[in-house]
Amino acid sequence: MATIGAHGIVARLPAGFEGRIFVRPSALGSTYPVAQFGTFPLPDDIGDFGSGAVNLMGPEDVFATLFEYGPESLGTALFARPGRPASFAPDDFSPIVLRRGLVGQSGTQWFFTEAGRPFSFYAVLGSHVLRGQLVPRVNTLLTSLALSPVAPDVPAARPRWN
């Protein structure tokens, strides 16, 4: 089981998952950490919410992104939920909750505040019909995440000179 961590986000990747945790270059204003996970090969140049990746999913695949928002979002109604959901139920997924609606897929999105940081967790199932077997994989991923209150701008996990 591989473990990756950066920017205050650590993931113990379940079998079959790969992922990345990154911050986009801040050419225009501030950017914040994004963590993306998938059970299929993730290209490096995909959008924050999976554009360029969800169209590569097979019916048995799962994609998820953990997106951090700026501190101005703290305390707002959208992020009032304390902590991520403990788990999802198949009924939490719906074809209408997709940024890009692809035939057969479904998704869910939740906003919350954890470790003093405002996040959104967005997950896509390759097949809504197979949600009964795919949602547990999302739940396993969800519980594998550890979020710490490390300030996003602190390059704790960046390479250092020795």
Binding site: A2, F17, R20, A157
Partner: peptide, 12 residues
């Protein structure tokens, strides 16, 4: 760049 990355070589 210092970001985290994991490549699963068995997921396709």
């Amino acid at each position: 760049a210092g970001d985290a990355r994991a490549i699963a070589v068995t997921n396709s």
